[in-house]
């Protein structure tokens, strides 16, 4: 029996683009950028939902909006029954303790002027948890749990490699013992061998702490590896979602198909495989009108966008 932890419906995040002072004075109608445009999905407790798509599809915006790091322009997101977008004051603080985030860039995600200890303990300081000694103890515990040593606690971020920095970022996200973690492209800036270490670490931590992941990535192999269910995003919308095997073995949406076709496999049988590549550019929500790709002309494009939706 699964329990729904997060239920998102009709999430919308529209931006007003380029509305400068002069534009306002001249009464120029600003462009609306529909970065996320009516996204709905559910995340079950303890599972990993993979959110996959190409650049500009709105996947990161979705993750950040869910955590109230950006304000949505529409829709609801019920976390454990309560609408995240309605929270304020102490309730919002409680939600922030229950939900964490791991970022893509291991360089910009750690303050270069703080030591590993200060970075990992920051969430505790912010939420006024424990005494200074208890926080130190917790930082030591966490840094060991993510595979570094306590001797490295007083080092600065630039003394660590990319993979080690990412481990520190993960330790920080776990400091408040969250139930739900948004992993925003956590391995895409890492080398292949290090990427595998971090994926294994995330796997282990999920088992150990009963974590629920929203795993945002553009790398389909990574998504296949880590996810239980997958949602494919294109131009601010989810075009297909369902269990990982179904999506990867029997994709219904032509875009999903095209994505899967495009990935080169690391196998000699791949040699010389002619890919029927999707023509045109990856569309940007900024110029929707201009973004016509042949795939959108596909007979199945609008038939049943969520063919596999929650088949389980």
């Amino acid at each position: 029996m699964t329990e729904t932890l997060l239920s998102v419906s009709d999430l919308e995040k529209h931006y007003v683009d380029g509305a400068s002072l002069t534009d306002r004075l001249l009464g120029v109608e600003p462009d609306r950028v529909r970065a996320v445009d009516g996204v709905s999905f559910e995340v079950q407790r303890g599972e990993t939902l993979g959110l996959v798509g190409e650049s500009g599809c709105g996947k990161s915006t979705t993750g950040e909006t869910l955590l109230r790091l950006r304000e949505p322009t529409g829709g609801t997101a019920a976390f454990d029954g309560e609408d995240v977008f309605e929270l304020s004051g102490p309730e919002l603080a409680t939600f922030r303790r229950r939900a964490g985030i791991v970022f893509q860039d291991p360089f910009s995600s750690l303050d270069p002027r703080l030591t590993a200890r200060e970075i990992i303990a920051e969430p505790l300081v912010v939420n006024d948890v424990g005494t200074a000694a208890e926080r130190d103890e917790r930082a030591a515990e966490l840094i060991e749990r993510v595979g570094l040593s306590t001797g490295q606690l007083d080092r600065y971020p630039n003394e660590f490699s990319g993979g080690q920095r990412q481990r520190i970022g993960i330790a920080r996200a776990l400091a408040l013992e969250p139930e739900f973690v948004v992993c925003d492209e956590p391995v895409s800036a890492l080398d292949v061998s290090v990427q595998a270490q971090i994926l294994n670490l995330l796997d282990d931590l999920q088992d150990e702490f009963d974590l629920t992941y929203l795993f945002i990535a553009h790398d389909l192999s990574v998504v296949r590896h880590i996810s239980d269910r997958v949602a494919v995003m294109y131009l601010g919308e989810i075009v297909e979602r369902g269990p990982v095997e179904t999506i990867f073995e029997d994709p219904a949406h032509p875009y999903t198909e095209a994505l899967l076709r495009s990935v080169p496999r690391a196998d000699p049988s791949e040699h010389g495989r002619r890919v029927d590549a999707l023509p045109g550019d990856v569309p940007s929500p900024r110029d929707r009108a201009a973004c016509f790709r042949a795939v959108e002309d596909h007979p199945y494009w609008d038939s049943d966008p969520l063919a596999h939706a929650d088949a389980d």
Binding site: G163, V192, S193, V194, Q195, S221, H225
Partner: peptide, 24 residues
């Protein structure tokens, strides 16, 4: 071998990756 073991296979989700320990 380590490199090849590190990448998840798109067509076969192996339960566990075999990364190379340490860093470059």
């Amino acid at each position: 071998e380590g490199l090849l073991g590190s990448i998840p296979d798109l067509d076969d989700p192996a339960p566990r990756l075999q990364p190379i320990e340490g860093s470059v």
